[in-house]
Nucleic acid binder design. Structure first.
Lengths: 190, 190
DNA sequence: TGTACATCAGTGAACGCGCGTTCACTGATGTAC
DNA sequence: TGTACATCAGTGAACGCGCGTTCACTGATGTAC
């Protein structure tokens, strides 16, 4: 049956959200169109009312995930911390938490999908590139410049990627803890 | 037709090599069984003479890739460099080279497959975990301890993952160069 | 404001292709005598 | 050492399932009068 315009737009958002989370959890290939639609409370046939293809959705979902991620970073300095340094440390601690490791669907996109992105075509890679650019810019504000931002981001992403791949809880925790402390303790981090 | 025993073993090795490279280039899902066999100069039907399943091969291929990677690290200190520090710097420079970024099939497995591994089952993850363990141990010898090794590895992996995902040559180069210099310049790296 | 009609969001069956896996077949290798 | 036979590595067609995509259909929404 036809649906009211407000509902249509709400449904489109639900599909995007479901995809944004699902792709981070299962990867581009691991998440099926039918799963995405089910996650949004719809049936798979209606998918093409919203998106040209699964790949089109992937690009838009990446864009959404990354914008959210950068936003979160932008407001990280606006908390109750007294200094930028404290805000950065709080951010790093949250980024490398066991919760984020175990819930990629609500965590940063880079560790989940960067390797997949490298094998995707145009639009997805473009969204990813803009995301990295904006992320480095935003993190630079907290971390004290572009160089520090790139170093910190690399360590965060690498640590999370390794901690997620490893099948041993102690080793996984060790990686997260070591990098967290390594980034926080020294004079400037990294 | 039947084939001599020496040929059989040689063919098995060829299949493993083709898989080891192919998976790093295209990911677990992106590389088809038929492609692997073609890469080894065979036809797809014979695949199950060697391996129980594609997943079984994936585990063995990971194991092979990682053993090679750790070996290479183990001999990195045996070159003509005069100090361990120089050997470490040479290793980092090679790891983060444009050549390695553009040729994942001959580069470290972690940046290519870690995220995929997290979504694979038992045997693959086990091989990966042992690889990380052995790698950290070996890198610790060069980098001055386990903590430094984990920090360094995380930065290497993160930088490569981001540099590969990004669709902009300048940004990609910038990431590699920044992390390379960041790891090399300061007193102890990281 | 009410009514008749056109639109189109959502449904679920069906299509078609790709890919992992199986299988009957072959002929060279390895073995028994 | 030579010969006859059994084995089995490799081949390529075929199977079957999964998944992205399409399509005919429906009924509620939106619109024209």
């Amino acid at each position: 049956m036809k649906t009211s315009r407000a509902t249509v737009e709400a449904n489109r958002q639900k599909v995007l959200e479901a995809a944004s989370e699902g792709f981070r959890r299962k990867g581009f290939d691991g998440l099926r169109v039918a799963d995405i639609m089910r996650g949004a409370g719809l049936t798979h046939g209606g998918f093409y009312n919203y998106f040209e293809s699964k790949e089109d959705l992937a690009a838009q979902a990446c864009d959404l995930s990354l914008k959210r991620q950068v936003e979160r970073l932008g407001t990280a300095g606006a908390g109750h911390e007294t200094t930028r340094r404290a805000a950065l440390e709080a951010y790093i601690t949250r980024y490398l938490s066991g919760h984020n490791r175990d819930h990629p669907e609500s965590a940063c996109l880079f560790p989940s999908l960067a390797a997949d992105v490298a094998r995707q075509s145009g639009p997805v890679r473009k969204a990813f590139t803009q995301g990295v650019d904006a992320y480095v810019e935003a993190l630079g504000g907290l971390a004290g410049g572009r160089v520090q931002a790139i170093m910190t981001l690399s360590a965060l992403v690498g640590a999370m990627v390794l901690a997620r791949g490893v099948d041993d809880a102690a080793l996984s925790d060790d990686i997260l803890t070591t990098v967290r402390e390594g980034l926080i303790k020294p004079e400037g981090g990294v």
